[in-house]
């Protein structure tokens, strides 16, 4: 017995494309996915690229990646939340990453972190309400020779103290 013909389904990826149509970033991401031939094992690489393009991994992006790689959304969400490097929340205009590796910790990185937390009234992992500064911590950035190190907007800065960190932060928050 022949099954009744199923109604024509739009292509899986196309379902997420309408809102992405005018967005160049989705095009770049698609090209990147094609480079990996839509292989399942490229998921982490693709998420890296997506985060680089969008700044964080919003739900639409995760669904789009899942559809493109033909993976269940649960798997994509599972991977995105498992790894610390991926963030599902938007970041502030500036990022301050305090390294809390052993060498930095022994040399007082926790005091640097505490000073910044107090100044910005946020905890590590949070963003200020005005979306200006995101305060993050790292588990060793391999710059132990110049501990304690802090990464301001992607620039590794050596031998920080609570005072030098606050000086940098104040440049961002006060106009």
């Amino acid at each position: 017995m022949a099954l009744p013909p199923s109604p024509e389904k739009p292509r899986i990826a196309a379902r997420y494309l309408p809102q992405a149509a005018g967005d160049k970033r989705f095009k770049i991401l698609e090209a990147h996915i094609k480079k990996f031939q839509h292989r399942h094992d490229a998921l982490i690489e693709v998420l890296h690229k997506a985060q680089e393009l969008f700044g964080y991994l919003e739900d639409d992006v995760l669904r789009y990646v899942a559809a493109q790689l033909k993976l269940p959304a649960s798997r994509v969400y599972g991977v995105a939340t498992f790894y610390h490097f991926f963030t599902l929340k938007p970041q502030g205009a500036h990022t301050c990453v305090v390294c809390l590796g052993t060498a930095c910790y022994v040399k007082g990185a926790n005091r640097v972190l505490a000073a910044v937390e107090q100044q910005l009234h946020i905890k590590a992992g949070e963003t200020t309400p005005d979306n200006q500064v995101s305060l993050l911590t790292a588990r060793c950035i391999g710059a132990c020779g110049i501990a304690p190190a802090v990464v301001y907007d992607g620039t590794v800065t050596p031998r920080q103290s609570p005072e030098s960190a606050l000086a940098q932060i104040n440049q961002w928050v006060t106009p």
């Binding site: 292989r39 399942h40 094992d41 490229a42 998921l43 982490i44 690489e45 998420l47 890296h48 798997r75 599972g78 991977v79 498992f82 790894y83 610390h84 490097f85 991926f86 588990r139």
Partner: peptide, 23 residues
């Protein structure tokens, strides 16, 4: 293959799972 900040991936079986694009 670029890791994504999980210490446990230094363990060889976890590392292989990560290379395969899994948790």
């Amino acid at each position: 293959r670029i890791g994504a900040g999980a210490f446990v991936c230094g363990e060889e079986t976890a590392l292989m799972a990560s290379v395969e694009g899994k948790r």
